[in-house]
């Protein structure tokens, strides 16, 4: 939050245009999940206050829903460079240096997404083999890993795009 939210991906074009559109809509999808959770929560507190029941499993679905939404937000955040940095020591650094640091950051994001895809796939299989479910409505937790893994694949794609851009910038800055 402590970063001005003026990062947008609008106005950029190129071969990866459809990829950007997909990632933006994926993030919006996460936003819809969040809105749906908000509405469900409002219904649930209204029911609790009036008739004394609640939407079954409301709080465990909120937990899982928020986790899914956050994963869906990751690719867009990477694509738009909205992860917070400390710029003070490098404020006077040249274009070349900046390009190298963006390249390094994108590379870390790329490795991180690959690592998480690998590990969380295994985590999903574990959860499935152990039949782990949520406490109240018995929702199988491993199924929530499917949108999470899809998000990580998009994070990988987003990191490739930002890596490519940084590489391009690095090449340009040499001349």
């Amino acid at each position: 939050m402590e970063k001005p939210s003026n990062f947008t991906d609008d106005g950029r074009t190129g071969p990866e245009g459809p990829v950007r559109t997909l990632i933006r809509w994926w993030a919006l999808g996460g936003g819809f999940v969040l809105c749906a959770l908000a509405i469900m929560t409002v219904i649930s507190v209204t029911l609790t206050a009036t008739v004394g029941t609640q939407v079954p499993g409301d709080f465990e679905m909120t937990e899982i829903g928020v986790a899914v939404a956050v994963f869906m937000f990751l690719p867009y955040t990477q694509l738009t460079g909205a992860n917070v940095t400390v710029d003070i020591f490098t404020a006077r650094a040249g274009r070349r240096f900046s390009a190298i640091m963006v390249l390094a950051s994108s590379a870390i994001a790329l490795l991180f997404s690959i690592l998480l895809i690998w590990r969380m796939s295994e985590g999903m299989l574990d959860l499935r083999s152990y039949n782990e479910v949520t406490g109240i409505i018995g929702f199988p937790i491993w199924t929530a890993f499917i949108p999470m893994l899809m998000s990580l694949v998009l994070l990988l794609v987003a990191s490739l795009v930002t890596t490519g851009e940084a590489w391009h910038e690095f090449r340009e800055s040499r001349t």
């Binding site: 152990y130 039949n131 782990e132 479910v133 949520t134 406490g135 018995g138």
Partner: peptide
């Protein structure tokens, strides 16, 4: 009980 389903 923290992992429902796991210790049936």
């Amino acid at each position: 009980g923290y992992t429902p389903g796991r210790f049936p």
